[in-house]
Design a protein around this nucleic acid. Structure first.
Lengths: 144, 144
DNA sequence: CATGAAACATCGCACGC
DNA sequence: GCGTGCGATGTTTCATG
């Protein structure tokens, strides 16, 4: 994981559809050597997968909210219960007054309300506190 | 934006490195027709870009926190001030008691503290409330 | 890590549904 | 208009030095 690896990851985050020749030229490597480095980055798990970034509004997920989930029990084994709610994009165990923080995307606020209802149905959940996003300034790749 | 388009987007989110032939076979299309549909999805902005998903811990961003930023002024024009803080991965205007919600990734909690210091220096910011993530259950693509 | 060659995928065009 | 099939071009992949 040297400077060249970091440069490769940075450029792949910006555009993973470019050729290895172009990617290599940008960091001073041949296409073959570039390919080998990227292969190893994948193997080591630094790069998890290649994916596409989708406009949420274009696929019926125009409403974004973060929900603090309070509980009266240990939530560490409840991963599956949150995964079962398709509208939950992220779920984290957190420090502080709440127990779990989830990121939710739905088409409408009615559907958001329904997600809250299903969150209350999860074992141990004693309350929710939803924060609705009015406008997203930006979402960007990791700094390197 | 029919069912085939949705299937294409779903499969590309899971693996954008597969060939158009393989992608087409999965949805019952030829490679050429698949390529044309994906090109149009990009053109329309449904697919914003192709990127790689990186393990944050592997690139020195093992600490994740969400910060509620309180303000005593309208924050709608402060996008640039938040963008200038490299450790901020997402920034949203929110409804409710706080004004802005930011997602922050740093290598250490000391660096997180430094980000909070820089947030206080932003014009109009009157307070912060940080929630540190202890463990991430999952982060996954949009539902379709 | 670079180079060259073979295997493969992409991409444009003419055709057919 | 939309998808198909083929051919030219460019890219990946693997050998060797």
């Amino acid at each position: 994981m040297d400077d060249i690896d970091r440069a490769l990851v940075l450029r792949l985050q910006q555009d993973a559809s470019q050729s290895y020749a172009a990617l290599g030229a940008a960091v001073g490597l041949s296409a073959g050597a570039t390919h080998e480095r990227v292969r190893k980055l994948r193997e080591r798990g630094v790069i998890r997968r290649t994916t596409v970034e989708v406009d949420p509004a274009a696929v019926g997920s125009g409403v974004l909210a973060y929900v603090m989930v309070d509980s009266n029990a240990w939530m560490g084994d409840s991963k599956a219960a949150f995964e079962a709610i398709a509208e939950i994009q992220e779920a984290h165990i957190i420090a502080g007054s709440a127990s779990v923080l989830v990121k939710v995307r739905t088409a409408t606020t009615e559907q958001l309300q329904d997600v809250l209802r299903r969150l209350y149905a999860v074992d141990g959940v004693s309350g929710t506190h939803a924060t609705v996003v009015l406008d997203t300034f930006f979402e960007r790749p990791l700094p390197l």
